[in-house]
Amino acid sequence: MTTEELKNIKADFVVDARGTACPGPLLAAKKAIGEIESGEIMEILSADEGTKHDIPRWCDKVGHEYLGFADLDSYTRLFLKKA
């Protein structure tokens, strides 16, 4: 997905993990994934640079579809679709 497309995505669930450093955002994502149904889209907000690498690896391992990220000034929005 292009950055433009990602910016217009309407997520079914937004996890704000901007207040935590590694492994906070990953733990927050893992916790939140239980709140949504299969096929729904989750958005993770993170101010931790490493998350951009970690979330796709996590999705790859547990089977969710990683859609991509969009960088903002002070944080990143990451998107995924639950398997």
Binding site: C22, P23, L26, L27, A29, K30, W58, K61, V62
Partner: peptide, 11 residues
């Protein structure tokens, strides 16, 4: 502890 908790997040 970071590796341990991170690992749980990774199932």
């Amino acid at each position: 502890m970071i590796i341990a908790t991170g690992a749980r997040a990774m199932d």
